[in-house]
Simulated assay, not measured.
Amino acid sequence: MSLEFRITDAFTSTAFGGNPAALVLLPADHPRRDDTDFLLSVAREFNQPMTAFLTAKDAGDEPKYAIRWFTGLQEYPLCGHASLAAAALCFSELNSTARRVQLEAAACILTADKLDDGSIEIALPQDLSVFEDEPVPSEAKAAVKDANAALFDAVIEMRKIKIGWLVVLDSAFDLEHAEINYVALQSCLGSYAFTQARLAPSAVGEAIFSRVYHPFSSTPEDFVCGAAHCSMVPYWLSQSASARLPPKEGGWTHSTPLKSLQGGPRQGMLAVRWDKEKGLVALAGSARIVMKGEVLV
């Protein structure tokens, strides 16, 4: 039984930008639907940053899909960019009249909304561990210094987050074009989210810029990382950090939307907001389907 697939670039309107994901339509009656080893093998064959498997559950006004996320190495409990890509496929091809779709995973249920401007917004659980005063081990600091000494000199602070470390940099440092030795980051476990305020934003008007590395991953640089934004957005919209953002009429509050640009050679743009009361970080962006075909095994 063959399986339809799409390769979709998330958080971009331009082909070959943003963060790519493979999307595989997995029928409920497929004989290997629950075969994790098979799904992992398919993901490994695609060799994309993430592969998502979608199974239709309810085709009503608010369609529901079961979703699982895999890299070529393991299954993940959550992936933001592949979820936005999956929602884009639902809205563009599978349920073209729907305005909302639910993606149901083992550990969570994500809601994706189609906005009036055509972009898609997904809401992920916030990560407030960024506000805990957990000491940063010397090994993590040394890893950053070995990855790029000039970058280390620009560090304002490092904070522990769920996926690893949030590394806040001075705005004057050229993070966008920096050469970061991700192998050096392997000396201390965890991912590294490098972020800075953009006092001189580009034409797209971003307020923050970031690059994220998972040094042990098959794709070390994460071109657009939803999980990192779950801690990054609350951090930047907190009272202390927002003072370093570009000036804004009326000032910044925790509910103020902002634009975030992420990536080095390949970049994605997000419109983000923090729903502090609901404990969610909302990420909005576009997606572009660039390939389609069939898995023939």
Rank of each mutant, 00 (worst) to 15 (best):
L3H: 08
L3T: 02
E4S: 04
T8W: 03
D9S: 14
A10P: 03
T12Y: 04
T12L: 04
A15F: 05
F16M: 15
G17E: 05
G17K: 10
P20C: 08
A21N: 02
A21H: 00
L25G: 00
L26I: 03
P27E: 02
P27N: 01
R32I: 08
R33K: 11
D35K: 13
D37L: 12
L39C: 12
L40G: 10
S41K: 14
A43K: 02
E45M: 11
F46S: 05
N47S: 13
N47Y: 09
Q48I: 01
M50C: 09
M50Q: 10
F53W: 01
T55E: 02
K57F: 01
D61A: 14
E62H: 05
K64S: 11
R68C: 07
T71F: 06
T71V: 12
G72T: 03
L73V: 15
L73S: 14
Q74H: 11
L78T: 09
C79K: 04
H81E: 07
A88W: 05
L89H: 00
S92N: 06
V101W: 01
A106H: 12
C108F: 15
I109Y: 02
T111S: 10
L115R: 12
L115I: 01
S119W: 08
I120D: 03
E121V: 07
I122V: 10
L128W: 07
S129R: 13
V130Y: 04
F131I: 15
F131M: 12
E132R: 09
D133N: 11
E134M: 10
E139N: 14
N148S: 07
A150P: 04
L151R: 09
L151Y: 03
D153W: 05
V155K: 07
K160T: 15
K162E: 13
I163P: 03
G164Q: 11
G164T: 09
W165N: 08
V167Y: 08
V167T: 12
L169R: 09
D170F: 09
D170M: 05
S171T: 08
A172D: 13
A172E: 15
L175S: 01
E176A: 14
H177N: 13
V183W: 10
V183S: 13
A184V: 12
G190A: 06
S191M: 15
A193R: 00
F194Y: 15
T195S: 14
T195R: 07
Q196V: 09
A200M: 06
P201T: 11
P201Q: 09
A203H: 14
V204S: 15
A207Y: 05
F209G: 06
R211L: 06
H214Q: 14
S218L: 10
S218W: 04
V224G: 11
G226S: 07
A227F: 09
H229I: 09
C230S: 15
M232I: 13
P234Y: 06
P234E: 05
Y235H: 07
Y235R: 08
W236T: 10
L237M: 14
Q239T: 13
A241Q: 03
P247F: 11
G250M: 13
G251P: 00
W252K: 00
S255D: 01
L258S: 04
K259W: 03
G263C: 05
L270Y: 00
A271N: 15
K276F: 13
L283C: 08
L283Y: 11
G285L: 13
S286T: 12
V290T: 05
M291H: 06
K292G: 04
K292P: 00
G293T: 06
V295N: 02
